[in-house]
Amino acid sequence: MVRQDGKRNFVLREENGTEDSVFSGSTPRQAALKAARRLPPAPSEEEVDGRAELRLREKGTDKVHIYNGWAWKEEKPSDGPDWMPEVVTRANVSKEGIEHLD
Rank of each mutant, 00 (worst) to 15 (best):
T61Q: 00
I66Q: 06
G50V: 00
T27H: 04
V88T: 12
A36Y: 06
R13Y: 00
P85T: 04
P85Y: 13
R8F: 02
L12D: 08
G60Y: 01
Q4K: 13
K59L: 13
P81R: 01
E45D: 08
G97D: 03
D102N: 04
L39H: 13
W70G: 05
R51Q: 13
M1C: 10
G6V: 12
E47P: 04
Q30C: 02
V22N: 06
S94R: 09
I98Y: 14
P41M: 05
N92K: 15
Y67D: 04
P85S: 10
R57Y: 03
N68V: 11
Y67K: 02
T89I: 14
P85C: 14
W72P: 01
E47A: 13
E14Q: 03
E46G: 01
P81M: 04
P43E: 14
G69R: 03
P40T: 05
R13S: 00
L12C: 12
P43D: 09
R3F: 15
V48M: 15
A71P: 05
W70L: 02
I66N: 01
I66Y: 03
D62E: 12
M84N: 04
R38A: 10
R51H: 11
E47C: 01
T61D: 01
M1H: 08
R55Y: 01
Q4L: 11
K34C: 07
G25Y: 11
A35M: 09
G60S: 09
L56M: 09
L54K: 09
A91S: 11
T89L: 05
K76F: 03
G50C: 13
